[in-house]
Each structure stands twice: as structure tokens, then as C-alpha cells.
Write a protein that binds this DNA or RNA. Structure first.
Length: 231
DNA sequence: GCGACAG
DNA sequence: ATCTTGTCGC
């Protein structure tokens, strides 16, 4: 088990107050660092994603630790908890973060960089689940989403690795990255301790022949119950 | 007021 | 996210 200090104050219990939750997001967004604050020579990275069981009553979070050099999975874990609240656009992290943090504690090694399925700062109040995850754990994080929540962008070229900025209210909040030709682009945004200029490159480093980068792709497979097994 | 809306 | 087989296109 890792001994990562999770900031409980950054993960308030859901009390049904939407307006209040949004205020909390604005405050937590103020703690996000958009400068590279990680070891240049990454040793281990991790992917996180969430799925549901029992008609949504159970939230299932998957955490996969990989060797940053070989991209080979070193550990895979699944955490199940009772679902805490329904899905509300813009408040995704309040619903899924508790399970993700539980999965994080199952890792035997603290990852140097975390990739979360969802947005980083590409969010109405700049606190998508990846950013929230970073602030709550202090770990460098990046958001890898499949669809835009807010903002507009042009179409990135069809070549693998092409990317264009995603903007919202006059500022850049992320990138549209063509990880694979003829596939819809990924929406990549910094979570915490990662610079905008580094985000797309960091994700592309772990893309092989699939649309999703290995960390998120493997976690996705574990989170959705269509998994073949372990090792 | 009318849509849009990560997973 | 989830319910679900085959099928069209590269």
C-alpha cells in the first residue's frame, strides 16, 4: 500500500448542494499548478478510470501502474464502493473521485505521473476530475477525455500526433489530439503540476496503436466489466 | 428562455 | 457510464 497523503478537505462529502459544490471547485481550482512539477525521467506512470455495476449502485474504479519506459503493466487494481451521487455535468469528480482515490491506495508504488479518463482544467470552472485528483493527492496529473465538455476548437489534421488548441472564454484550456488517424481526437488537458505545453506530448508518448494512451486504455478495460482477467 | 452537457 | 449483434468502412 502506498502512503500518499490525501487532502481530505479537497474531497468534501456530497450533500446535494450543487451551488456549494461549484464554489468548492472554484476554490480548489485555485490550487492547481500549471507548471511542470515532475521528475523529467518518469519511472512509473498510472492510468485511472471508472465504471459502474448493479445498475449504477456500485462505483468501480481501476488503477493500473505501468513502467514508464517499457509501458508494461506492473500492477492492476479495482476498488468498489457504493455510488455516492448521480452524474451531474460539471460535477463528475464528486461522483467518481472517492472511488479513484480508493484504487490509488491499493498501489504498491506511488506513480510519477497520473492519467485520468476525463478532463483536467478543460472544465467550466477549471477543475475537471484529473485536476481535482491532482490537487487532492499532490500528484502530477493529466486529463484524457473522449468528448469536449466546454470550449471550441478547429479540426486537427488527420496525421497521427496532430493537435490544435481547445479554447474557452479567451483562454486555452487544453488540446484536441489526433492520437490515431481516422479516429476522433482525444481532448487532453493539464490536471496538476503539468504545463499546457507538455500535456499533449506526454500523452502521445504512451500511445501505441490504439486511440487511447496505454495508461488510460488499460484502466478502461479493467473499469468496464468486459475484462478477461488479470495478469 | 433555449440548448449543451466529461463519465 | 450502461443496455447490446451485426455491420459498414478503411
Amino acid at each position: 500500500m502506498t502512503t500518499i497523503a490525501i487532502d481530505s478537505s479537497a474531497v468534501p462529502a456530497w450533500d446535494g448542494d450543487v451551488a456549494r459544490a461549484r464554489d468548492v471547485q472554484v476554490e480548489l481550482a485555485g490550487r492547481v499548478s500549471l507548471r511542470d512539477g515532475f521528475d523529467k525521467s518518469l519511472r512509473t506512470i498510472a492510468g485511472f478510470d471508472v465504471g459502474f455495476e448493479e445498475d449504477g449502485a456500485i462505483t468501480r474504479a481501476a488503477a493500473v501502474l505501468l513502467d514508464a519506459r517499457t509501458m508494461q503493466p506492473l500492477e492492476s487494481h479495482v476498488a468498489r464502493i457504493d455510488t455516492v451521487m448521480p452524474y451531474i455535468p460539471g460535477l463528475l469528480s464528486f461522483r467518481e473521485l472517492p472511488a479513484l482515490l480508493r484504487a490509488l491506495t491499493l498501489l504498491g508504488t506511488t506513480p510519477d505521473m497520473v492519467f485520468v479518463d476525463g478532463h483536467g482544467i478543460a472544465h467550466p470552472r477549471r477543475l475537471g476530475i484529473a485536476a481535482h485528483f491532482g490537487v487532492a493527492t499532490g500528484l502530477p496529473s493529466i486529463g484524457v477525455a473522449k468528448k469536449i465538455l466546454v470550449g471550441t476548437a478547429s479540426e486537427p489534421h488527420q496525421v497521427r500526433g496532430a493537435y490544435v488548441p481547445l479554447r474557452h472564454k479567451g483562454e486555452q484550456i487544453g488540446w484536441l489530439l489526433r492520437s490515431k488517424p481516422k479516429c476522433n481526437p482525444l481532448i487532453v488537458s493539464p490536471g496538476h503540476r503539468v504545463a499546457m505545453a507538455s500535456a499533449a506530448d506526454l500523452v502521445m508518448r504512451y500511445v501505441t496503436t490504439y486511440r487511447l494512451p496505454e495508461p488510460t486504455r488499460l484502466a478502461d478495460r479493467l473499469a468496464s466489466r468486459r475484462d478477461a482477467g488479470k495478469a
